[in-house]
Simulated assay, not measured.
Amino acid sequence: MSKYSITEFVRQTEQKDRGQGFFELETPRLLEVNLKLNDFVWAKTGSMISYLGKIKFEREGILEHGIGKTFKKALTGEGISLMKAKGRGKLYLADQGKKVTILHLQNEAIFVNGNDLLAFEPSIKWDIKLMKRVGGMLAGGIFNVRCEGTGMIAITTHYEPLTLKVIPGFPIITDPNATVAWSGNLQPTLQTDISLKTFIGRGSGESIQMKFEGDGFVVLQPFEEIRGKREHS
């Protein structure tokens, strides 16, 4: 049989059960969610590419997660539009071909850029958090999602993620547009480096940076994902 035959192509690319549980990486860029009877999952709106079985999709209700989050989303315009997938079957999720990473939180917390949060189990508590801004450098600051509890979440990155350890006394500076997530105990601040404006070429004329201090980690991607806009790898 030719290695380029249709039969061989189907064999190499067909869906495979890996027995990994509720969340499963079908490919590095595609998440499989295994829903049993009456299970449900929260997923980024528009991320469904296929499903098998009987699954119903519901748009996130106006007060689904409490009036506090509703007001925050209305105020910030944060791109955390969710849908609930409920039923029994296999659900396949993806986001612009970005790499998918599954994280199993065990009574832990992590901050994630809202645009990079693909899906999470209903046992995970979440809230929108605003980073303190410096003067008028940003019209509304930078908003992220704090996920906390025990359960699985799936995040996405453009290409391969890099995790840097934050050590007391040795702060790490990052570009907000390349910063995907960080440990829940860190409280980064925003700063500017005017000396970099010649090299950045951004409309603001300033280099806005995130400064992480303490003991934890930061997840980066080798790609600048301009917040509020949709970018493609």
Rank of each mutant, 00 (worst) to 15 (best):
K3I: 11
K3R: 10
Y4H: 05
Y4S: 13
E8W: 03
E8G: 00
T13Q: 09
Q15D: 13
Q20K: 15
Q20F: 08
Q20A: 12
E24W: 04
L25V: 05
R29D: 15
R29T: 13
L30C: 14
E32P: 01
N34G: 00
N34W: 02
K36F: 03
K36L: 06
L37Q: 12
F40V: 00
W42L: 13
A43I: 00
A43Y: 07
K44M: 11
K44Q: 15
G46Y: 03
S47Y: 08
Y51K: 13
Y51Q: 07
I55D: 04
K56M: 10
K56N: 15
K56G: 13
L63G: 00
G66K: 08
K69E: 10
F71D: 09
K72G: 00
A74T: 10
A74I: 11
L75P: 00
L75D: 12
L75N: 14
G77W: 03
E78M: 08
E78H: 08
E78N: 02
S81T: 14
L91S: 01
Y92R: 10
D95Y: 15
G97D: 09
K99C: 03
K99L: 12
V100S: 04
T101D: 05
I102W: 14
L105Q: 12
Q106N: 12
E108C: 01
I110A: 01
V112L: 11
G114C: 09
D116L: 03
L117I: 09
L117H: 13
A119I: 08
F120G: 06
E121Y: 08
E121S: 15
E121I: 06
S123W: 07
K129N: 07
K129E: 11
L130R: 11
V134A: 04
L138P: 00
F143I: 12
F143H: 13
N144D: 03
T150A: 11
I153R: 09
T156F: 11
T157F: 05
H158C: 11
Y159V: 00
E160M: 05
P161W: 14
P161A: 15
I167G: 04
F170N: 13
F170R: 12
T179D: 04
T179Y: 09
V180E: 08
G184D: 01
N185R: 01
L186S: 04
Q187Y: 01
T189N: 10
T189C: 05
D193K: 14
D193C: 06
L196G: 03
T198N: 06
F199S: 06
Q209G: 05
K211M: 14
F212M: 02
F212V: 01
G214N: 02
D215L: 11
V218F: 01
F223N: 03
R227K: 12
H232S: 06
